[in-house]
Amino acid sequence: MEHYNMNLTLKVWKQKNSQDKGRFETYQVKNISSEMSFLEMFDVLNEELIREGKEPIAFDHDCREGICGMCSMYIDGRPHGPWHANTTCQLHMRAYKDGDTIVVEPWRANAFPVIKDLMVDRNALDRIVQAGGYISVNTGNAVDANAIPVEKDKADASFAAAACIGCGACVAACKNSSAMLFLSAKVSHLALLPQGGPERKSRVLNMVAQMDREGFGACTNTGACEAVCPKEISISNIARLNAEYIGAGLVSEK
């Protein structure tokens, strides 16, 4: 792979805090290596801003290996940028060429208020999990692990749903700011396993109710969520969620 350097123009959302109105600022960055990650390019810019006595750009990031779900930039109109099945931290600068202009915004959704610049508050996702995204088993209650065989294809499908990193890209991509892909991944993860059986109905009803309370929009099956999901969570999970929800509502014993 040939490496090269580039100069870029960045238009980045700056917002002092949740009360501030916010605006775009334009920055020039020079001599960016194609081997850098996108966030390393931001590191370079921030170092320069600090040396010039200016305010650096605040953004969320932690593991920088695509698994913690903390990074969250909306890059040129797409959560996590141009690459398929990718997080911002794993986007590398070989995706760009010399002279490009890149527009970077925070996740936009009513349920995700901006904290500062590119950082948003995603606690609503934790509260959806609190509403039922678990199996109620206290430490010490478990039987031997192999006493519960699970069909391999179901275990694999459960794992595929559980791979969700909770980044919120699905919400940011959706024109309705719906959290259905996130929620359906959690419901599927647990509904596909026999361990998740006892709470299957109450879980889906309570989690959907919490999602609505948080101010996420409805799902209209446009599929934008699936297209940007860094972990390729399938939209078929939403179909499963709907079936679970209807089933739970129809035969609810309460």
Binding site: A142, A145, K152, S158
Partner: peptide, 22 residues
């Protein structure tokens, strides 16, 4: 060994063989 039992009970989707065991 208790850890594996606890995690499976919580729904941790460990890799499985075709027979359904871990």
């Amino acid at each position: 060994a208790n850890i594996i039992d606890q995690c499976v009970a919580q729904g941790v989707p460990f890799a499985r063989e075709y027979g359904g065991l871990l």
